[in-house]
Amino acid sequence: MRSDTPELFKKIFALSAVAILIVGFFLAFIEMPKGWSVNVNGRVSRLYILKNVRTATKLLDSGSFFAKGMKPLRTDVAYTPIEFKKTANLEDGAANVVTSIVVDYRGFDTLGEVTVLFLAVSGVMMLLFGKPRKEKKKKTEPSLIMYVGTRIAFSIIFLFGIYIFVHGHLTPGGGFPGGTVIASGILGLFLGKRGYNPNHAGLKSFEALSGIAFVIIGLIGLFSVNSFLANFLPTGIVGNLYSAGFVALIYIAIGMKVGAELAAMVDTMITDTEEEWS
C-alpha cells in the first residue's frame, strides 16, 4: 500500500481484513465435530498409538473409534486398552505425546532450535556488549516492598520453572517454557534492586555445560543404538516420573540452557553499558 493512500482507505482495509478473520473463525467453529471440547487431544494421541503399536480390532468392529477410511496398521495383535499407571512402552513411555515427538522423533530439530536461540542471544550480546557505565546522578532505589516481594516470588517462580521442565514428559510444558519462566523470575530480581549483578562466569559456563550435555546425550545414543539422539534408556511405565527414557534428561538440559541464556540476555539489555559507537 502506498504512503499517500488516504487514511480512510487504510482503516477500511484493516477493518475488512479483521471482518474476514472473524467470519473465518466462526466458520472454523461451525465445521468442528460435536463434542470437540471433550477430548480431541486424547483421541489424536490414542489414534497414533493404535495405528503404530496396538491394534484397534474391538473398536474397529463397533465402528465407534476411527473416522472414515482410517485403519490400523496391524490387525494381528489383540486389542488391550491403555491404562495410565500400568501400560508400558507406549510411544516411548511419555504420557505427554507431544514431548516424545519433539524430543525423541524430532530431537535433531530441537537441537537446531536451541542453536537458533543461542545465535540470537549471542547477536544481542555482541551488539550491546561493553563496560557498565558509572552512574553520575543518583537514581531512586526501588521500594522495600518491591525488593522483598521479588525475592520471595523468585523462589516460587524458580521452583515452578524447574517443575515445568522436569515434568515435561508427564504434563504440558517442557524445556523452552520452563527456561523462560526461570528467566522471567531473574528479570524480577533485576527490577527489585538497582545494580543487581549476577555471576556472569557462572551463567555462561552453566549454559555451555548444558548445551554440551545435550550433544553428549545424543552421542551416547549414536554409539549405543546406532542413531544420533536415539532413546537409549528403558522407557518405563506411562505416567511415572522415571519414564520416557532420555526425554526428561534432554528437557532438563534444554531448560537450564534456555534459562541461563535468556537471563544473560536480560542482564545484557538491562545493564547500562557504554557502546563503542554511540
Binding site: I164, G174, P177, T180, A183, S184, M265, V266
Partner: peptide, 17 residues
C-alpha cells in the same frame, strides 16, 4: 503446551524486553 509457551514468552518475557 503451546498455551504455556505463548504465555511465558509472548506475554511475559518479550513484553519486558
Amino acid at each position: 503446551d503451546v498455551a504455556i509457551t505463548e504465555a511465558a514468552i509472548g506475554a511475559g518475557l518479550s513484553t519486558a524486553i
